[in-house]
């Protein structure tokens, strides 16, 4: 395949991925928006007004960046895991496997599709959050950079999950038992300054803490941890996951007999 053909193949995968989640928008776009609206109402207005300030910020302002990041993470992950596993389950992944499309194009195509949904939902939730809280964006490059890298990282993780999955249970285990606890305990709803000793050290092992804090820094200018370290960690994990996913595709793991 020449470069032009590769571009067409990449574009085709991305277009198909976007068409997929747009076709089923009541399942893919509406639920996260409703969930986040409820979070804003309950934690931001009802409970938040009684909590007062968190890290010198009104609670709604503190929690909003975390909620936006939460929607980016879950939607990037679930788009790729369900689309890729769905293709495996229906065997239509074979359409791609028999074609000359290189594995790295397949990988990047799916990842960009996942990021499109993750960032799309993130944007809708951001617009929604403006209704509930006042923001003056602190650093656009940090905000955009960390949200792009986080979406990339969780799209990659979703693809790896889908490659290994052999049943629909396998694609819900990680989001339910790993991703959700990590997000809830990753500094979305509270500052880690509230924790002490063992629990604080344990939380520092949670990668989502770094992403949420970097994003919060970009939006409102406060963070519990070092921003450069956050970018380095997300970059390193993304690179590792990228090469792992590519290696699995090259090997044909769980895809070719």
């Amino acid at each position: 395949m020449n470069n032009q053909q590769k571009w067409v193949a990449f574009e085709t995968i991305v277009r198909r991925e976007i068409r997929r989640f747009m076709r089923i928008w009541p399942q893919t776009l509406v639920p996260p928006v409703i969930t986040m609206a409820l979070y804003f109402v309950i934690f931001g207005k009802l409970v938040g007004s009684r909590i007062g300030e968190m890290s010198s910020l009104p609670y709604i302002q503190f929690v909003a960046p975390g909620l936006i990041m939460m929607s980016v993470i879950t939607n990037s992950y679930s788009n790729v895991v369900s689309s890729f596993f769905g293709s495996k389950f229906q065997s239509n992944i074979e359409e791609l496997l028999v074609s000359p499309t290189p594995n790295w194009i397949i990988l990047v195509g799916y990842i960009v599709g996942g990021m499109a949904r993750g960032l799309g939902v993130g944007l809708i939730v951001t617009l929604l959050s403006i209704y509930f809280a006042d923001f003056s964006l602190y650093s656009l490059p940090v905000t955009i950079g960390i949200v792009l890298m986080t979406s990339l990282m969780f799209s990659l993780a979703g693809l790896i999950n889908a490659i290994f999955a052999t049943s629909f249970d396998d694609i819900s285990i990680i989001p339910t038992f790993v991703l959700t606890p990590l997000i809830y305990l990753g500094g979305v709803f509270y500052s880690i300054e509230l924790l002490t000793g063992f629990w604080k050290s344990l939380t520092l092992l949670n990668p989502i803490l770094y992403m949420v804090n970097a994003f919060r820094y970009g939006m409102v200018g406060i963070t519990d941890i070092n921003i450069v370290g956050s970018f380095a960690m997300v970059g390193l994990f993304s690179a590792l996951l990228f090469f792992l996913a590519l290696w699995l595709l090259e090997k044909g793991s769980r895809l070719r007999s």
């Binding site: 053909q5 995968i13 000359p100 499309t101």
Partner: peptide
């Protein structure tokens, strides 16, 4: 879509 996987423009 299948044609696209072979690099054939839409």
């Amino acid at each position: 879509t299948q044609a696209g996987y072979y690099g054939i423009p839409a």
